[in-house]
């Protein structure tokens, strides 16, 4: 049943938004529909497929399993915030170079999960990449292109440091 609206202040990709939301409004719906940031995709609405993954204060969260009110005061990064000044993030570059995507529906979630993975472990083994991405499902690639992309991005990002 509809509930009283609450005020939230959420910073998304560096811009701060003040909005009124129902307490039950999912963060994913808030991002997609209220802010019109359609790059965050919803694949299962129960926290398994990882397509809706975004970064909240630097950590991955499932935006389909959170209410927008829970993100009050937080800083969110969505796929739209990954490329800066018209330049792709090294992970985006690597996915492009290594055919790390097919339909692209799962890709935003994978990229944000991979961001967090490389932040914590800049030099992962293939096994560590596979385990690190096991919270995201892809039905097109058989994962090979994704794993290769993340490994390629890791070595490129390391070289740039």
């Amino acid at each position: 049943m509809p509930q009283a609206y609450r005020s939230v202040e959420i910073t998304v990709n560096g811009l701060t938004y003040n909005r009124q939301v129902e307490p039950r409004r999912l963060l994913s719906d808030f991002l997609r529909e209220d802010l019109d940031l359609r790059g965050t995709h919803v694949g299962c609405e129960h926290g398994i497929c990882g397509a809706c993954t975004v970064l909240m204060n630097g950590y991955t969260v499932r935006s389909c399993l959170m209410f927008a009110v829970q993100a009050n005061g937080a800083e969110i990064t969505t796929i739209e915030g990954l490329a800066k000044n018209g330049k792709l993030h090294p992970l985006q570059e690597a996915f492009w170079e290594n055919h790390g995507l097919q339909c692209g529906f799962c890709t935003p979630g994978f990229l944000l999960s991979a961001c967090e993975l490389l932040e914590r472990n800049p030099d992962p083994t293939e096994e560590e990449v596979r385990v690190g991405l096991s919270g995201n499902m892809c039905r097109c690639t058989g994962y090979q292109g994704i794993v290769e992309s993340v490994l390629a991005a890791a070595s490129k990002m390391k070289a740039q440091k």
Partner: peptide, 13 residues
């Protein structure tokens, strides 16, 4: 490289 990818990688599909 795929022509589809820039839009899909940046959430603009």
């Amino acid at each position: 490289k795929r022509r589809e990818d820039p839009r899909l990688l940046t959430g603009r599909g």
